[in-house]
Design a protein around this nucleic acid. Sequence first.
DNA 1: TTGTAAGCGTTATCAT
DNA 2: ATGATAACGCTTACAA
Lengths: 348, 348
Amino acid sequence: MSVSIKDIARLAGVSHSTVSRALSDSPLIRAETKSRIRRLAREMCYSPDARARSLVMGRTQTVGVVVTTVADPWVAEVVQGIETTASAHSYTVILASSDDEPEHELAAVEMLRSMRVDSVIVTSSRIGALYGEYLGRSHVPVVLLNNHSEQGGAHSFSVRVDDRHGGCLATEHLITIGHRRIAHVGGPSAHLPSLERLAGYRLALAGAGIAFDPAVVWDGTGLPDAGERALNLLLAADPRPTAIFCYNDMTAVGLLRAAHDAGLALPGDLAVVGFDDIPFAALACPALTTVAQPKFAMGQQAMDMALTLMCRRPHECDGAGAPQVTGVTDNVVQGRLVVRESSGTRRR
Amino acid sequence: MSVSIKDIARLAGVSHSTVSRALSDSPLIRAETKSRIRRLAREMCYSPDARARSLVMGRTQTVGVVVTTVADPWVAEVVQGIETTASAHSYTVILASSDDEPEHELAAVEMLRSMRVDSVIVTSSRIGALYGEYLGRSHVPVVLLNNHSEQGGAHSFSVRVDDRHGGCLATEHLITIGHRRIAHVGGPSAHLPSLERLAGYRLALAGAGIAFDPAVVWDGTGLPDAGERALNLLLAADPRPTAIFCYNDMTAVGLLRAAHDAGLALPGDLAVVGFDDIPFAALACPALTTVAQPKFAMGQQAMDMALTLMCRRPHECDGAGAPQVTGVTDNVVQGRLVVRESSGTRRR
DNA sequence: TTGTAAGCGTTATCAT
DNA sequence: ATGATAACGCTTACAA
């Protein structure tokens, strides 16, 4: 099939180990031989076989990353953070989708394990708690990024945004600018972040002495249609809320759209706050106030954690001595409130 | 390190080949032995080593997909089309980013080749013409999806949207609803699609007997900021255009945003048409009229083409007899005009 | 029905 | 400075 070091060896009249050494720039090989072999390799379009190499080296120099879907704008930025850090350490990222289905997620991880990735990062995991036992003994470090299931046990490494704090931040902002009747559209109610952001919302209300009213709190999906549906519920509520905190920006954008169609003047008739700060938030009309997650940085952190964990294992790592990670590590980062037009005063 | 068939063999008191056969459900193995081995494998958390297997089998059951960046919403849908088709044929997708840099693209393909992917799909390639020679002899089929460079030579396989026709469609629509002074913001001028969409624009103008005026045609980047900049140019133009056709939806969305800030009433003061139909197009205010690319289907087609090409190679394929592909195949699909609010009459 | 041995393309450990 | 040889984990003739 493909040209191998043996093919080169044959043509160069040397042994295949000489070729291997020449190509890895070993000082043992005579300069003349080396350059001759390298020229030959180039001419023959030689490409080293990463599988064979990894088999004997004991590592693949790859990280597996499980995402719900690449179509999610939150995912895209996180992946870029991971990829940037990975390639800076000469690691290759292998992406796998879970479609937000626990079964698919498991299949994806299993597939990555078969590929012998050196480490796995799972975003928005539905089965986070399983990994402690599951992969702990297979010695493949697993890092959770915004775990959506209950927190794992003993063997757990994760990076996540402080959802509760973020929910609090968003709601407090609405209270600060004068709102008292504040609605909330949640995300998928089984997911941890939905619960936490809701908890933050309640915390902020309580802090301001505003009674929690279940009548203006609805379940959602995290998708634009949930926002559209929520608007109808909101219009029917009595008294009608003057502000609404949405589980995420996708929901908020759907709501913005529906509010526009309903002829509401935003933010005058209704103030809206989202969560995530996806690229489109700034482009929406009105531009969306939101709690920004440091998505890129979170991806970086997760990858850094994976790198550290890999160093603890069989083969030593190359880089400078990374801090030793022991037992459980849960890296919690804070969201940042970004005030735009959808709350606050209208431009022009 | 990881548990291998030899480890299982040792514990089961059989040879490693018996284990191999048992796990691949060979009819040669006694049922009792088989189930005993399989149970053991499960208990030991055995995971087959895809690298070792692929080494002897001669194929990895993977496709490499090169994209500019996962952050591009067009990319996301295309990748999903590819992935769906791939996994239906039990292929795994390995994603690599090029950042729209020819050098990175080459590096990505080189990396995928080292991983011995069975086939490569390159989206928005900057160096499409190179692949004919480059990988033709390495026997790895390459499929181009919306090639951004000049068309490749003898050994070329591609799927692409008819950019010229799409540009024509968009412009004709604006003409049909009564516009005569129509501006255009292009994409990166070196890329083929920019040129083609512009050509379509000119074609439509010519068809309606409208003179082409370079004064209302500007270069862009394909990003929202290009749309924002274009609005200023548009406002300064004399006579001021009443409509504008944008290279893509990202550009159009940026322009929508700027127009909103400038206090323009859309589509009354300015009609806008984009290209791509990204998910956000329908959510924008006003909802964006655009030329929809069948992104998912294009991904499917590219993957189907890759599957067909792989069948022609060393190892026979599994599925039903796919049509034989010979020499050059260029699959051109037509975009579809989706009329929304940003052209045509205002809702309510 | 099972075991033995060869080989996939590397790197690494011995010799020479 | 270079060549044999073993090993990585697997599949697959070929033997038994």
